[in-house]
């Protein structure tokens, strides 16, 4: 029986080229905003880390605005796609390393920017990964987190997680803004900005990119056909199965003083 990490690897490693050329991943208002935030930062980040870089679209957007950037991903073919993409764009200063977001292979306080885009919903140990992100940040450093945001409605959320899992068996969870804020606060990261954009998902390319089996495609279509009005409205489900997701962007700071560091939830033991 395969572990989750092996499942993620099996799903994404053969699809590196599809992700390198995916329009949904290669552009977007979130990517433009991320670029603006990093370029507009008072201090140019000297060392940056892209967690779960995939084919490297966030790395490519940010590399011109940072000193050095490390793209980290467990899938070797994705890392090879990052190297090819960087060469095509004439980008220097991007290094690739294989690793897991929940066990980062870096010393404390190494990076002044840690970023991630459309990856965290695959992380089986998100709490550990966020704690690790905070650990490797320099005090006063920034974290930039972009991912699909779950709807506030539990009904629409359950539908979304079901179709996400049918489409990609390595899917773990999309978190709501409220869930994200709890997790980020527990990791000791302070939110400075939050923005959200609608993201239209074109059905055929969405399942094509992941080589979703026909039985699962049929199950998704069946779920969509029987979805109640509230779900259809929340996800703007179209006749061909295309629908609307929300992309969220958090810009956070690691407090410069350890005294204002990690907070624990009130219910947790000291």
């Amino acid at each position: 029986m395969r572990s989750h990490d092996q499942t993620v690897h099996g799903q994404f490693d053969p699809q590196a080229e599809a992700y390198r050329h995916s329009a949904v991943h290669a552009a977007g208002p979130d990517l433009d905003y991320a670029r603006t935030l990093v370029a507009g930062n008072a201090a140019r980040p000297e060392q940056a880390l892209d967690l779960g870089s995939g084919a490297g679209h966030l790395s490519f957007a940010l590399a011109p605005h940072v000193g050095h950037l490390v793209a980290l991903d467990p899938a070797p073919n994705m890392l090879a796609a990052v190297v090819r993409g960087a060469q095509e764009r004439g980008l220097r200063g991007i290094e690739v390393q294989a690793g897991s977001a929940h066990s980062l292979p870096y010393r404390d306080g190494t990076f002044s920017l840690v970023c991630t885009r459309y990856s965290a919903h695959h992380w089986v140990r998100l709490e550990d990964a966020l704690r690790e992100a905070a650990r490797v940040l320099t005090p006063g450093g920034h974290a930039l987190i972009i991912d699909v945001i779950a709807p506030d409605s539990a009904l629409a959320d359950t539908h979304l997680q079901a179709v996400e899992l049918l489409r990609d068996i390595s899917h773990v969870r999309n978190r709501s803004v409220r869930e994200w804020r709890e997790l980020l606060g527990a990791a000791g990261l302070l939110e400075t900005h939050y923005r959200q954009w609608p993201l239209r998902i074109e059905f055929a390319s969405w399942v094509g990119r992941m080589r979703t089996p026909q039985t699962h495609v049929a199950a998704i279509r069946s779920l969509q056909a029987s979805a109640p009005r509230e779900v259809r409205e929340a996800l703007v489900i179209e006749a061909d199965g295309s629908f609307m997701l929300q992309t969220g962007l958090f810009w956070l700071t690691k407090p410069p003083h350890p005294a204002s560091g990690p907070r624990r939830p009130a219910s947790a033991p000291p």
Binding site: Q97, S103, L104, P105, Y106, D108
Partner: peptide, 16 residues
């Protein structure tokens, strides 16, 4: 292996 990279890398388990 870049010396600068070696400087930032640590064991993912013990961070040593």
């Amino acid at each position: 292996m870049d010396a600068r990279l070696l400087e930032i890398l640590a064991c993912p388990i013990c961070k040593g």
